[in-house]
């Protein structure tokens, strides 16, 4: 499969994504600059983490208007699988490709540590076959507090659009296991069609034995099992 990894000014996890695709999955990866207007005919698009445009205005807000986002929108509309990780998730919400918004962590601190999450829906290309799986993934963000209004939240929960939920090691979600104040302990969501997914945790940072944790690899392997679009 061909993975396109979009680099925005300030992205800093793009090379990590490329490494996972090439070295861990053994698939093809190419980087696409935000100023381009062509994704290079990929099967999967990854929007990596980082601090695009220095998080100016709101995290992801300026990147959401980048030239490449037109091609990302067309890819999304055609049903292509897209995963936004951390800042990539923020960009997808700012672009209106995913519901809700991410704002300042409830505790106001930048949080960088491992966090357990449970797969809340397997109806997405990146969580297929992983229903109820508890994963330990790194989080590293200042603005990961997921917000959606009550009506949107009801729709997300009703339609199974919540894909990852913060939890403890046993898989139970409660306030003490919620790192940032996200409503519904939401760590990741998908769009209504299911092909666009965003998550705050970083699966690309825990996908090989050298890093001491391979839980992240399962999410990338899930999309490989889906085959080409």
């Amino acid at each position: 499969m061909r993975f396109a990894v979009v680099s925005f000014p300030g992205s800093n996890c793009d090379d990590d994504c490329v490494r996972v695709v090439r070295e861990v999955l053994g698939e093809s990866a190419h980087k696409v600059w935000h100023g381009d207007d062509d994704l290079g005919a990929p099967d999967v698009v990854l929007l990596p983490g980082g601090f695009s445009y220095g998080d100016y205005l709101r995290c992801g807000a300026i990147a959401a208007g980048s030239p490449i986002m037109g091609a990302v929108r067309r890819f999304a509309a055609a049903g292509g699988p897209i995963l936004g990780i951390c800042n990539g998730f923020q960009i997808l919400t700012e672009a209106g490709l995913l519901p809700g918004a991410l704002h300042r962590n409830a505790g106001l601190s930048f949080i960088c540590r491992d966090q357990h999450v449970r797969v809340a829906s397997d109806a997405s290309p990146f969580t297929a076959g992983l229903s109820d799986r508890v994963l330990r993934l790194p989080i590293a963000h200042h603005d990961g507090n997921y917000h959606a209004d009550a009506e949107t939240l009801r729709r997300l929960e009703g339609e199974g659009q919540v894909v990852l939920r913060y939890c403890d090691a046993a898989g139970d979600s409660h306030d003490a296991a919620n790192p940032n104040g996200s409503v519904g302990h939401i760590a990741g969501v998908r769009n209504a069609a299911g092909n666009v997914v965003g998550m705050m945790p970083h699966p690309e940072r825990c996908a090989e034995p050298l890093l001491g944790n391979e839980d992240g690899r399962t999410l990338f392997e899930a999309v490989l099992r889906q085959g080409s679009v």
């Binding site: 205005l57 807000a61 208007g65 700012e94 519901p99 918004a101 704002h103 917000h147 959606a148």
Partner: peptide
């Protein structure tokens, strides 16, 4: 379109 996020 940019300065405000209508979600929040």
């Amino acid at each position: 379109q940019l300065l405000a996020n209508p979600v929040m």
